[in-house]
Design a protein around this nucleic acid. Structure first.
Length: 268
DNA sequence: ATGGTGGATTATCCA
């Protein structure tokens, strides 16, 4: 089974790219982030015509996550995280940043769009850390559900876990994505039992999944590795390959993120 | 130190 994750930065703006990507790489399951659309704004029939089932969880012009699968899509869940956007938010809105489902032969996949954090000291920075705690707790629950649970947490984690995951640490002084609390939050998910199952085959430095639109970051090879596939122990032992598709950052109409692809041996 | 780009919504907000 071939799964992929991609922060698409507007699904409406990149429908053609997504459909071409599914076909070119023979993708079974695709997790999307930053749909930037309400579900009712999306024309999902094009996926169905290509043989895929679709689930989306969208809310506003910034968030939204989706799962596209041609190997089944059941037990869809949207309740993570059960944390308000930020403490002073009176609306009580919970942003649409996580969508879980069971695909293939009992694999639980979560498409995740971790809050950006905005700036140090901003309420969204604390929100990001609280969100990570909710994610860690959910990850633990997944593993406890069954001793041999196969689960993947995929998406835009908005943290560069190691110094080599950004082009220049000096450029990130007093910036989000690299601070010790954010890295500890990411590591807490890893410590819960979820390993980065792509890094071993694609070690850094210089291996990135995101390049800012501004300042010619892509041609200057100044990127960040912030999109990951984290697999439970049962998944870790079933991985047969992985790939980061840098080609998708090229050309007109590219997202600022590229897809990360993982092959898993289907269980007995 | 600022602005640079891109997307959604419509003169800003967010990444």
């Amino acid at each position: 089974m071939r799964i992929a994750t991609w922060n698409i930065n507007s699904l409406r703006a990149r429908m053609d790219r997504v459909l071409a990507f599914l076909e070119r790489h023979d993708i079974d399951v695709l997790a999307l982030q930053e749909l930037k659309a309400k579900p009712e704004q999306l024309d999902l029939t094009r996926f169905e015509e290509a043989g895929y089932e679709v689930a989306v969880h969208g809310l506003n012009q910034w968030n939204g996550v989706g799962l596209i699968s041609r190997v089944g899509l059941s037990d869809v869940r949207t309740e993570l995280p059960a944390v308000p956007t930020w403490p002073e938010d009176e609306t009580g809105v919970v942003e649409a940043r996580a969508l879980g489902a069971v695909v293939g032969d009992g694999l639980r996949i979560w498409s995740l769009y971790v809050p950006n954090g905005r700036e140090l000291g901003h309420p969204h920075y604390e929100y990001k850390l609280r969100w990570y705690e909710a994610l860690r707790a959910e990850g633990v629950r997944e593993l406890a559900a069954e001793a041999s649970a196969r689960a993947v947490l995929v998406g835009d984690f908005n943290v560069a876990p190691f110094d080599e995951d950004v082009w220049d640490m000096e450029a990130f002084a007093d910036k989000t994505h690299v601070t010790p609390p954010e890295r500890a939050a990411f590591q807490s998910v890893v410590d819960a039992g979820y390993a980065d199952v792509v890094r071993a085959d694609h070690p850094g430095p210089g291996v990135y999944t995101y390049w800012d639109y501004q300042a010619l970051r892509f041609p200057k090879k100044e990127g960040m590795r912030i999109d990951f596939v984290l697999g439970s122990p049962a998944v870790q032992s079933a991985v047969t390959g992985s790939f980061i598709d840098r080609e998708e950052r090229k050309g007109k109409g590219a997202s600022d993120h590229v897809p990360v692809i993982l092959d898993i041996e289907v269980g007995p």
